[in-house]
Amino acid sequence: MLYFITRRLLFAIPLLFIISVMIFTFLNLSTDIAQSLRNPRMTAEQFAKVKEAYGLDKTGPARYFSWLGNFVRGDWGTSFIYQAPVAPLIKERLKNTLMLMALPLVLSVLLAIGIGVFSAVRPYSKLDYTFTGFSFLGISVPIFWFGLLLQLFLGFYLKEWLRLSEPVFFTSGMHSPGRPEFELMDFLRHAALPSMALMVQLVAGWGRFERSSMLEVVNADYVRTARAKGLKERKVVFKHSLRNALIPLVTVVAIDIGLLFGGLIVTEQVFAWPGMGTLILSALVAGDYPLVLSAGMVIAFAVAFFNLTADVMYGILDPRIRYD
């Protein structure tokens, strides 16, 4: 097991390396970051000095390896657009992203399990068809557009219909301006809409997945054995079937959580949530490579880490799997 984890983590290192090279090369090819530091009144000499100060006078590979060396040593560099150290910036934004993700993730898993179990126990029933219909809508709807609709209907129209001075659900940011640091109700009213946007795709995808893995299991021989033993139907479904049907779901959920770190870009952008997504987006537009690189590494690491988590969970949940 330990050997397996170590091997997988070692495999992640070349992956991270390749991704960082790609990010750096593409960014360098597309934007000349030095231009953003230029000021019309600067003389050529002054500009050269500024470039030198930021290390921009060196060649691409030299800059990349100096970034890499520092990154490995824990110095993540300074952002050009924020004019601030990258590490604390990412830490702050990562916290905000996690705050947005946590609740919808838990709710989505529970809903998906509920839908999956119900649909598989009563396949081709009216409610099963309804769930299937909704999950097709969920996986087919463009999230940004669904987010805009939420803003329009639950943010704007709801306020108009109820004739309120303030919307029930806020459509952007994570705190009202001028409020004290953290206030639960205020936070929830900001988080509600982006959470819904997030949950639609998660519940749709996971619910469908859990339905099909439950369907595979409910006709399994060992479920028949459980029934032949005279167990209560509740035990047959929730113990013998679900326990097996959860194994694949757990791995999919773990992988998706990793992907969400990068995938939240869209939701955060629509709802102006100050998380990793909006951070990386603004850094990308400006070609702020220390920020994009470090944030990209965090995201890629999250993806790799949760992929590994998925495999480890599989091994823990399924006694047949042994890693040696």
């Binding site: 021989d221 032949a228 033993k229 005279g230 139907e233 326990r243 097996n244 047949r320």
Partner: peptide
């Protein structure tokens, strides 16, 4: 359910798939 597994029991063909792997 009281009858199954108590008065009438069943043994299946393939014991590998008939036992719950987990």
């Amino acid at each position: 359910q009281n009858l199954r597994g108590d008065r009438i029991v069943m043994i299946f063909q393939d014991p590998l798939t008939a036992l719950n792997p987990v």
